[in-house]
Simulated scan of single mutants.
Amino acid sequence: MSTGLPLEMAVIQHVVFYKRDELTTDLICCEILMASGQTLWFHEEMPNWNDVVAQIELLEGFPQDWRSHVIQPPFAECRFMAYEKRAQ
């Protein structure tokens, strides 16, 4: 699946999900650290959010229940490391 983004699966170092308190709602966000040191940032209101999530969910060992670690309790950051590349 192509997202049209600079998202090279082989060079993803880690993926972190968290929530931002937007006063009346929470915004689920994702930071993806690449091997180059670049951090890509996405949030659930971006048009390509579903494509990005579908792609990173294919990473080896990626927990399919990551949302449950992030959504509760409301209005708390709930930072969750969903993927960390193992040293080879």
Rank of each mutant, 00 (worst) to 15 (best):
I32W: 03
A76M: 14
F42V: 08
H14K: 15
L59Q: 02
F75P: 06
M81V: 14
K85S: 05
A54Q: 06
G61K: 04
F75S: 07
K85Y: 05
G37K: 11
P6S: 06
T25R: 11
N48V: 15
Q13R: 15
L5K: 14
E31H: 12
Q64H: 14
W41C: 14
S68W: 12
G61Q: 02
W41F: 15
A82L: 13
A87H: 06
D26M: 13
W41R: 15
G4E: 06
V53S: 07
R86H: 10
N50F: 12
G61C: 10
R20L: 13
W49K: 06
E57I: 12
M1N: 03
V53Q: 07
L5Y: 06
E44K: 12
E31K: 15
L5S: 07
V52M: 01
M9N: 04
R79L: 13
T3N: 09
Q13P: 01
F80C: 05
E77D: 05
V52K: 00
N50Y: 11
G4L: 07
I28A: 01
Y83L: 03
Q64T: 09
F62G: 11
P47Q: 00
S2I: 12
L7I: 00
L5T: 05
Q88W: 08
W41Y: 14
L59N: 05
C29I: 07
A35S: 09
W66D: 04
D21S: 10
E60A: 10
E44M: 13
Q55A: 14
Y83P: 01
L40C: 01
P74T: 07
S68L: 15
Y18D: 03
Q13K: 15
L58V: 08
T24G: 00
E44F: 11
I12W: 01
H43L: 03
Q88S: 11
Y18N: 04
L5P: 03
I71R: 03
D51W: 11
F62M: 13
A76H: 10
D65T: 10
N50H: 12
I32H: 04
F62N: 07
P47G: 05
D65V: 11
